[in-house]
Amino acid sequence: MKKLLIIPLIVFSMTVFAQSPEETQVMKVVERVFKAMSTSDSTMLKSCFSPDAATYTLFTDKDGKPQIRQGSLQRFIDAVGQPKEDIWNEPIWNEKVEIDGPLAAVWVDYAFYLNNQFLHCGVDAFQLVKTEDGWKIFHLADTRRKENCVVPEEIKSRY
């Protein structure tokens, strides 16, 4: 009897966590951002974004006050493409994808490592639009903190 209950649970868990083909395409764009960062490929990075994409970082300052800082997509692309000895690694987990027609939102937890040194963690929140050329990021906001980071052991063990 117990064996009969296990099979439906396995099937149910596979369908709950399975991504639709559209969700898979959206996540491929997000994953390319991190691949571009780790390989210093500014061309790959630029291809993930719409030309007028906005970027923001949200954090708490030393006085505990919430802050928002608008970034520059071009500065991000340039920084990624600069020759450097250090490798930017930003593993992600807890991916959540929502899609409604041409709009997609992706929310992921991340940890940022410079080579093998942990620097900070947070959440990346992407908004994408479906274009004739595929999904493109038009808005990226991230949070950053150095404390209260709960990084999965399988990620920590890689760095």
Rank of each mutant, 00 (worst) to 15 (best):
M1A: 12
K2N: 10
L4D: 11
L5G: 08
I6F: 08
I6W: 03
I7W: 13
I7Q: 06
I7L: 15
P8T: 14
P8S: 10
L9Y: 02
I10D: 04
V11S: 01
F12C: 15
F12W: 15
F12E: 11
F12H: 12
M14H: 15
T15Y: 05
F17S: 13
Q19F: 01
S20Y: 01
E23S: 09
E23N: 00
T24S: 15
Q25D: 00
M27V: 00
K28H: 11
V30C: 03
V30E: 02
E31T: 02
E31K: 04
E31F: 02
R32T: 12
V33P: 00
K35F: 13
A36F: 00
A36Y: 03
A36R: 00
M37N: 00
T39C: 09
S40W: 12
D41K: 08
D41Y: 03
T43F: 12
M44C: 12
K46L: 08
F49Y: 14
S50P: 02
D52A: 10
T55I: 10
Y56G: 07
T57K: 09
F59N: 14
F59K: 14
T60W: 13
T60E: 15
D61N: 15
G64C: 14
K65I: 14
K65Y: 09
P66T: 03
I68Q: 13
I68M: 15
I68L: 13
R69C: 06
G71I: 08
Q74N: 05
I77V: 13
D78G: 03
D78A: 12
A79F: 05
G81F: 06
G81Q: 07
Q82W: 04
E85M: 08
D86W: 02
D86E: 15
I92T: 14
W93H: 12
W93T: 14
N94T: 06
E95A: 10
E95H: 04
E95R: 06
E95W: 03
K96T: 09
E98S: 07
I99A: 10
D100V: 02
D100C: 01
D100Y: 09
L103G: 00
L103E: 05
A105R: 04
A105L: 03
W107I: 06
W107K: 04
V108I: 09
V108E: 05
D109C: 11
D109R: 12
Y110Q: 01
A111F: 08
F112I: 09
F112P: 02
Y113S: 04
L114F: 08
N115F: 03
N115E: 03
N115T: 06
N115R: 05
Q117L: 12
F118T: 07
F118K: 14
G122H: 08
V123D: 07
A125D: 00
Q127L: 14
K130I: 01
T131D: 06
E132T: 01
E132N: 05
E132P: 01
E132S: 09
D133A: 07
D133M: 02
K136R: 05
I137R: 03
I137F: 02
H139T: 07
L140S: 07
A141T: 13
A141H: 11
D142I: 11
T143S: 14
T143E: 09
T143G: 11
R144P: 02
R144W: 01
R145S: 15
R145Q: 15
N148C: 08
C149K: 00
V150C: 08
V150W: 10
P152H: 14
E153K: 01
E154K: 11
E154M: 07
E154P: 10
I155L: 03
K156I: 10
K156P: 14
K156F: 07
S157P: 05
R158S: 10
R158I: 11
